[in-house]
Design a protein around this nucleic acid. Structure first.
Lengths: 107, 107
DNA sequence: TAATTAACTTACTTTATGTAAGTAAGTATA
DNA sequence: TATACTTACTTACATAAAGTAAGTTAATTA
């Protein structure tokens, strides 16, 4: 990316949020801690990309991966404080969608 | 994309906003009407993709393309009412970035 | 006349995503 | 015991999206 005049924090934030699936994953996790397969089927993402995204989001401190040492192990993903702080962003999008998106068939 | 339980308007909105560059383009146009080359150099996007995105955003009714019939012609891009309504979304992201993003080198 | 600018488009390369199958560990079912 | 199934992934390969660089058209300036 070339040099810009835009606030680097803002730009960094957008580079995370602009990635495909990130918004939906965070939105989904706002409902609470969830397992890999559950997120996968709820939002219709492929396992390959979900795995990748969750790692990215973990690295960014937005998502937390917790291993419950039962048998068999249970692994759950949840939002950190930083991740929860994205709720107003998602709400703003929801609000915009309600006011401006036409109800139409998706394809 | 597979079936989900998520509000279709919200999902549609995310499918637009989640696309690379969309956020930055809208953010840039919040400063007012601008020409192609200006947007291109300000946000560091390639002409190829900018052209594509502006067409998408126009189709979605978020951006308006105006041709001023001078010589040489001047073409300007601006936000529609629907596009301007995205300001709270960008503000929410800016706010989150200010509170949670660490200042660090962008590679 | 040559060089420059704006607004793109085209051709080609690289990166991201999708699809499908595979793996490892454990569970349930016949 | 053997077969099938579940979870949480990973791997290999195919397709789609984005980046890079050069080209186009029309007009302007040096």
């Amino acid at each position: 990316m070339a040099d810009t005049n835009i606030c680097p924090k803002f730009e960094k934030a957008l580079s995370i949020l602009n990635k495909r699936w990130t918004g939906l994953i965070v939105f989904q996790l706002l409902n609470g801690s969830q397992r890999f397969c559950h997120i996968e089927s709820e939002i219709g993402i492929s396992g390959r990309v979900l795995s990748e995204r969750l790692k990215d989001l973990e690295k960014e401190g937005i998502v937390k991966r917790t291993v419950y040492d039962e048998t068999p192990v249970r692994i759950e993903y949840s939002l950190t404080e930083k991740g929860l702080a994205l709720e107003p962003v998602l709400n703003a999008i929801q609000n915009w969608a309600d006011n401006w998106m036409e109800q139409e068939a998706v394809n």
